[in-house]
Every structure is written in structure tokens, then in C-alpha cells.
Simulated scan of single mutants.
Amino acid sequence: MIVIGILGSVYFQNLGELNNALLNESSKAIEFAISLAGIMAFWMGIMNIAKDSGLIEKIGDRLSPIMKKLFPSVPKGHKAMSYIVMNMALNMLGAGNGATAFGLKAMDELQTLNRKKDTASNDMIMFLVINISSVQIIPFTMLKVRGDAGAQFPNEIIVTTLFATIISTFVGIVTCKLFQRRNDK
């Protein structure tokens, strides 16, 4: 895309505009990345405190019946489940950037349970589907983006975001389970 943009700029003889856009927008990208780093660090810290205090274990125990249905191959008390719960909690709070580290750790732990190392397991696929659709209770990152963009009411998207992500997660889980049943036959 960068090459196409440069070639198009040369062809249409507007290299000056390209230079201005590169200089202005690149500084905005750096400012945005730094501001998101603060949000990410905050939620990663909160989740590490929750993990160290045992809160994640308690949440995992409460969610155990649901999680066992979603991830039937993960044994009780396995590290993968706590990483999955932390990832889901951060995603629900809209801190998807902070959830990435826990998602990667969850996938590593799920891989230890995988018998076919070169193929994703059903639990890995289910986790990926839930992670991608992720229910957003409070979409902090999007609220920050909207606030930075000058939205008068950046929080007006909360209800519609919650509704849309609940539907997308439900559809993703049902579809994944249907494909798993079909492939198990």
C-alpha cells in the first residue's frame, strides 16, 4: 500500500502532499500509540494484581461450567484457563491491546494440550473465535479514539457496542460448535 501510494503520488504529481501527510500523520500515530500504551499498562497491571490476588482463580471457578462447555479439552486448574479468563476480561473492558499478551500465553498453553502440533485444536479455534468477536462491556480504546477525534459524546456507543459484540460472540460460538460437531462425525 505504501508503494502504491508513492507511485500514485508520483504519477499524479503531488509528492508535496505525500510528504506533508507522512510528516503530520506519522507524528499523530506516535502520539496515539503512546496514549494507548498508558491504557494498556494500566489494565495489564490490574489483571496481574487480579491474578496474583487469586481473583482470576475465583472468577474462573464461577465461570467453570460455561468454560468447560466452551473448552472441553482443558483440564480443571490448567494455566490455559486462567490466561483465557484474563484475556476475556480485558477484552470485555475494551482493552484489547492489553489482552493480546494473555491471549498469546493462552494459545501457548493450549498448544501444550494439543495432540496434533501442526493443526489447531478445537479449543484453540474456539478461543480465537471468542477473542476476535469479544464482548465489549466498556470499549475503553474506542472511547479514547472517539474522545481524541473530538466526539461530543464519545460514550454514546457503549450500548450498541455491547449489543453487537454479544450477538457476534454468540453467533461465533454457535457456528464454531456446529463445525466441531460436523468434523467430529
Score class of each variant (00 low, 15 high):
M1R: 09
V3S: 13
G5W: 08
G8Y: 07
S9P: 04
F12T: 10
G16P: 08
E17C: 05
L18C: 04
N20D: 15
N20Q: 10
A21F: 12
A21K: 14
E25S: 11
S26Q: 14
S27C: 09
A29V: 10
E31L: 02
E31S: 13
F32W: 10
A33S: 15
S35Y: 02
L36W: 09
L36C: 12
G38Q: 10
M40L: 11
M44F: 07
M47G: 12
I49H: 07
D52K: 15
G54F: 05
L55G: 12
I59M: 10
R62T: 12
R62K: 13
L63Q: 08
P65M: 03
M67I: 13
K69C: 11
F71I: 08
F71K: 04
P72C: 07
P75D: 07
K76E: 15
K76G: 11
H78M: 03
K79T: 04
M81K: 13
M81T: 11
N87K: 01
M88V: 12
M88Q: 02
L90V: 10
N91L: 08
N97A: 13
A99T: 08
A99N: 12
A101P: 01
G103M: 05
M107Y: 04
D108A: 06
L110K: 02
Q111G: 04
Q111V: 06
N114R: 01
R115T: 15
K116P: 05
N122V: 06
F127H: 01
L128A: 15
N131K: 07
S133P: 09
I137V: 15
M142Y: 11
L143Y: 07
L143E: 03
D148I: 02
A149G: 03
G150R: 00
I157G: 10
I158C: 09
V159M: 12
T161N: 04
A164E: 05
I167A: 03
T169Q: 06
V171E: 01
V174D: 10
C176L: 03
K177P: 14
F179Y: 11
Q180S: 05
R181F: 10
R181W: 10
R182Q: 08
R182N: 05
R182P: 04
K185S: 09
